[in-house]
Design a protein around this nucleic acid. Structure first.
Lengths: 162, 162
DNA sequence: CCACGTCCTGCAATCGGTTTGCAAATGGAA
DNA sequence: TTCCATTTGCAAACCGATTGCAGGACGTGG
C-alpha cells in the first residue's frame, strides 16, 4: 500500500566497489562477463536499499534484459557471494550487494508503509546462536532478523500527499 | 530437500487450550462456529509446530474442506489473534495457535533439512526495538526473527535412512 | 420450531513471484 | 577465427495465495 511513497528511499547512495571490482569477481568465479550481468551489478551498485527482481528490471534502462535472466543471475550472484538475499515478508525477494570480502553482518528496519529501509548495525541474535547450538544440538546455526515500523515521513505525511 | 525426514517433528504435543475455549473465542468475535473452523483449530491444537495451509489441509481427515477455505480462515483467525503467522522463508506461511491471552513472544529454531522446529525462549531484539524507534524516529516497531540450522537427527542420519 | 439475512464454503478462475525447457545468441579460450 | 559451454530470450509452467460467484450453513429473532 502507499506505493508512490516508495520514492522516499534514498536510492542513489554509492557502494564502495567499482564495477570492475565486481566483474573481476565474476571472472574469478569462472563466470562470463555478459551485458545483463554488468547491468544488474551496476544497478545494485547505485542503490543503497535491497531491490526486488522487478525493481532491478525496471531500473535497467538501455541494458534491458529478460526478467528470467535477472532471476537466474540473482541465483548465480548469490551463490558466488556477490549479493545477499533478503526476505521482508511481502513475497518478493530483495537483493543487496555484498560489501567486499568482509561483509558486515547487518539487518534492516523497514517502513511498513513506504518500504524505506534503514540498515541496522549490531546483532544481538548472533550471540544467541552459539547458545542455541549447544542447547539444542543444532549445527550451522544462522538467523534471519528484520525490523518493521512506520518511518517518520509516513507518519507525518497526509495520505493525500501521495 | 529430504522431505520424508519431516516426520522427525514431534507433531503430537498438546496445546493448553481446549477446543471449546477456542470456539468460545470465535463466538466472542462474532464469528460463526463452522465445521471447517473447528476442524482447523483442532488440527492446530494437536500440533506443536507451525503448519502450512497445505499441511493443515492434509491433516484434516473426515472434516476435509477446500484449501481456499483454509486460506480465508487463517486470515480470519490471525486477525482475531487466535493464531500467529510465521514465515520461514520457504515461500509458505505457517501458523501456530496463540497460547491464551498472554501469548508469550517467542521465535523458532528451524532445521534446514527436515524443518523440525524448536521454540526459542527469550528475545534480545525486543530490547533493540525501542532504541531503534528513537534513533530512526520510527514508530510501531516490531521485528521478525528466525533461526536456522541442522538438527542432531539430520546431522547423524545416513541419507539413505529416509 | 421455523424463517430469514448474513456469513461461510466450494469451485474455478486468476494473480504475482519464480522457475524451467528449448533454441538461438554470445563469451572467451584455443 | 573456430568452437563449445554458458547464457539469454521467450513462452509455458509452477506454486502459494487470492477472489468472484452462486449455493449452503449458522444462529438470531420471531
Amino acid at each position: 500500500m502507499n506505493k508512490p511513497c516508495a520514492q522516499h528511499a534514498h536510492p542513489h547512495r554509492l557502494v564502495q566497489q567499482s564495477l570492475s571490482d565486481l566483474t573481476q569477481k565474476l571472472r574469478d568465479g569462472d563466470r562470463k562477463i555478459t551485458g545483463p550481468r554488468q547491468a544488474i551489478l551496476d544497478v545494485l551498485r547505485r542503490h543503497a536499499n535491497p531491490l526486488t527482481n522487478k525493481e532491478i528490471h525496471a531500473a535497467l534502462g538501455k541494458e534491458d534484459c529478460d526478467l528470467a535472466t535477472i532471476y537466474r543471475n540473482m541465483h548465480t550472484l548469490e551463490s558466488m557471494g556477490l549479493v545477499k538475499r533478503y526476505d521482508f515478508g511481502d513475497g518478493a525477494a530483495r537483493f543487496e550487494l555484498v560489501e567486499g570480502e568482509t561483509d558486515h553482518h547487518h539487518h534492516h528496519l523497514v517502513c511498513r508503509v513506504c518500504q524505506t529501509v534503514v540498515e541496522v548495525e549490531g546483532c544481538f541474535p548472533a550471540e544467541l546462536e552459539s547458545a542455541l547450538a549447544t542447547r539444542h544440538a543444532f549445527t550451522e546455526v544462522s538467523h534471519r532478523l528484520e525490523f518493521f515500523g512506520v518511518c517518520p515521513r509516513c507518519r507525518t505525511d497526509a495520505p493525500t500527499t501521495a
